[in-house]
Amino acid sequence: MNITFNTQSAPHIPNTNTVTKVMLMVWLALIPAMLAHVFFFGTGIIIQLTLSIIFALGFEALSLKLLNKPVKLFLKDFSAFVTALLFALCISPVAPWWISLIGMFFAIVVGKHLFGGLGQNIFNPAMLGFAIVLISFPQAMSAWLPPQEIAPYAMSFTDNLQAIFFNRFPSHIEFDTLTQATPLDTIKTAISQEYALSEITTQPLFGDFGGLGWEWIANFYFLGGLFLIYKRVITWRVPAAVILTTIVFSLPFNAYNADHFIGPIAHLFSGGLMLGAFFIATDPTTGCSSHKGQIIFGAGVAIMTVLIREFGNFPDGVAFGILIMNMSAPLIDRLTIPKAFGQNE
């Protein structure tokens, strides 16, 4: 038979969507929040981001090489960049450089490539890396900067470099006032010392809803998330489930004892909840595939987060909530296979 034309199968008209585009869109959506981060916490995030990108790409290339996979093809997909960015947004702007190194090692090598690479990982790589450094190096991870509005001293770019690479902080300021715990951490400690929430939140560290500065960054995560929904990179289901469940689930606790349990709005605008709701719990690879499953997944993340924040040992529970739900995703998927067209009849 004479074959003179290309006989590939349908569809024959091209599809312009690519993984790279999807990943770039996520990056784009995070830029406003990143700028807000710089505004409130200084230039540390830029250094952290550069470090994590370098480590992420390095580990990515190394893993691909060792696994005999096409390096260039997979570096082009931009997924390691997204992992690096999400990780950098989670860690303290003055965390030592090796936090990124270790975090990215676990994220990219263990979390991603040992499970089979792009699309095959069970855990969200950024959250896995973050959880490991959080558990292993609590001290380095909990030393955050106060927002620049209330900081006794604004860390310059060189100060940040010095702090990150040499653990050298400006000597004329007392270290304890230079770095401070995160708002959620502060609440956790204060509540364990039997302070009332109403007293705690009068500290300058707190803003209108959540932590000062933090709440603004959360706003930008929210906006970036809406952009992703608009661009059809993510759907509304997971973020909506996370946000609504957080409100519904934390409300009874707060109503029972408002001085001991954080209110729903404060939950939303504190810590990593908005980032998690729109950018991490929506990671399709590690989430649920059915629409019903996605709602269960989001609700699970919210419940775990509130439980860990209120009753756990860690100030924030978003990362753990997401990792726990990552593990449950295959089971949820199995139980929520949607009815195919015509099977309702």
Binding site: T16, T18, D77, G119, T235, S289, S290
Partner: peptide
């Protein structure tokens, strides 16, 4: 007209197909 925009990569389970 028939050219694809990129290389074939593993599924990232983005769910656009479900939509």
């Amino acid at each position: 007209m028939t050219k694809h925009s990129g290389d074939t990569l593993p599924c990232i389970r983005c769910g656009e197909c479900v939509n």
